[in-house]
């Protein structure tokens, strides 16, 4: 199984680098995953990650993108509550790239 090393720990991932164990996640792990995705984490990036984690905690799935954009709009201002802004933050797609950095499993299906 693929894995990566960070601060003396080994973290198991799937083939695309998504964490296998959700409990392995930490801010340091997120920063490491962000580097592998060439994403520089700003405050706005962390807002997305934190919202994804909170939502997942409750519903065991990533939120529909529209729920995410609305939540981000509320936190960061209405002009940022749209898909384009999310893609600017996470060019690999909020569903896949942001989920990866947030330590969520990769969404499956026709996405």
């Amino acid at each position: 199984m693929p894995s990566f090393e960070l601060n003396g720990h080994t973290y198991e991932t799937d083939e695309d680098g998504y964490l296998i164990n959700l409990s392995d996640w930490s801010e340091d792990v997120a920063k490491h995953l962000a580097v592998t995705e060439s994403v520089e984490m700003s405050e706005a990036h962390w807002e997305v990650v934190n919202f994804l984690r909170e939502y997942y905690e409750e519903y065991k799935i990533a939120p529909m993108i529209r729920i995410l954009t609305k939540a981000i709009g509320k936190k960061l201002g209405k002009e940022k509550g749209n898909t384009k802004y999310l893609y600017d933050l996470y060019p690999g797609g909020p569903a896949k790239q942001a989920c990866k950095i947030a330590g969520l499993p990769k969404p499956t299906g026709c996405v």
Partner: peptide, 12 residues
């Protein structure tokens, strides 16, 4: 509906 209709843009 396909479940992507409950998740993705532009499906929604």
């Amino acid at each position: 509906a396909p479940s992507a209709d409950f998740f993705s843009e532009p499906h929604i």
